[in-house]
Design a protein around this nucleic acid. Structure first.
Lengths: 206, 206
DNA sequence: CCTCCTGATGTCAGTTGCTGACATAGAGAT
DNA sequence: ATCTCTATGTCAGCAACTGACATCAGGAGG
């Protein structure tokens, strides 16, 4: 017989999300969360570095999945393609495993509270570092690896936003792919699509 | 005769930087900063939303400069080119106005402390939003505007990092341009290739 | 069976970031 | 002379977070 109820971490996570939905993020204290999970505030901080961190349990898995996806891409695939493909796969995974209502609620929290968004952004930055390392392991040199990683993150951000903002989110991979195509177009074009007669010389900014 | 010493905000900013250098970020309390500036903690929080914010006085100006740069770019210039050019110009401005020692010390703080880095990242995200709006004002449609903005930010991040990591930082604009070129290569290529490191004589010159 | 040790949890006191409410006082306006 | 305005001070208080130490069921080894 276990001495304590199992899965304290998981209990804290669900208690937190439930309370955030009921009373909002600011209206919920860490003590509240711990109490609902049948624990104390001190124990909460043994599992999570701070109040926000309780919302980011999936970050580690996501990173692993993406790093594996990049490592497993065929050799002939370009860096950006490898990154985008890994994001597609990881996104589809998330789409299957997570309840869309949960993803929506969490996304609402992130957009509504700057402090949570800050944490989200630093997680993405850490993901960029991991992606860079995965690319370097494929033999991609710097600064190509960093640029491909950051560009990939940008694609992921925009793809995710547009996916989650749909009435009925689906086809995560399609949104990623679409954002990647836009990136390619944006990086390729030298001028605006409608350019009848070049009047000014394109004096490069000095 | 002024009732109070002038420029309370500026005094708080310099007091903060000085103390961060002397005792480190965590070793400095807001009360310390206020005391050195001849003020009280409460007054500090009237000027800055929180302790970190005292390090981000330049963000507003940077954003303005970049938005103006984008708005002022010739019509024929592509979205990404407009963004990159604006970053080049703003970077050169910063290079002129700010002491390199200050930039270095601040950069060290950002990289050393996750909480400060979080703030930096959310400022960049806000900048991306502003850039997106500036592009939309040029008639660039979504999602092209968002993608160009995020890609531009990525270029700026990497360009800045490489610039500030030099023994003697100079030619900010060249680093931005180099990162942008890498991005174009990365977005264009179908297979792995090696992109040469930015050298003095880069690909383009005006 | 006894003992010791381990590890998850609790208790408690303390610091710091940050906020709301209210007070103060000099400079300028009427 | 009084009035107002506004930057600042004072004070009380909450919530996030930390360090130090206590507890106690259960497993390991004798």
């Amino acid at each position: 017989m276990a001495r304590w109820e199992p899965d304290a971490r998981g209990r804290l996570e669900t208690a937190a999300m439930d309370l955030f939905r009921e009373r909002g993020y600011v209206g919920t204290t860490v003590e509240d969360i711990a109490a609902r999970a049948g624990l104390t505030e001190r124990t909460f901080f043994r599992y999570f570095a701070d109040k926000r961190e309780v919302l980011f349990s999936g970050a580690k898995e996501l990173e692993k999945s993406i790093v594996l996806g990049i490592a497993g891409a065929p050799d002939a695939v370009s860096p950006l393609e490898a990154v985008v493909s890994a994001f597609e796969a990881a996104g589809a995974e998330l789409e299957d495993r997570r309840d869309i209502q949960y993803v929506r609620a969490r996304y609402a929290l992130v957009t509504a509270h700057a402090e949570i968004q800050e944490r989200e952004l630093i997680k993405l930055a850490a993901l960029a570092v991991a992606v860079t390392k995965a690319l370097r392991a494929r033999g991609v040199p710097e600064p190509t690896a960093s640029v491909a990683a950051e560009a990939g993150i940008a694609v992921f951000k925009i793809g995710f936003e547009r996916w989650v903002s749909q009435k009925k989110p689906r086809d995560f991979a399609r949104h990623i792919r679409a954002a990647a195509d836009v990136l390619k177009a944006v990086a390729a074009e030298r001028k605006t699509t409608t350019v009848p007669h070049p009047k000014k010389k394109s004096t490069r900014r000095a």
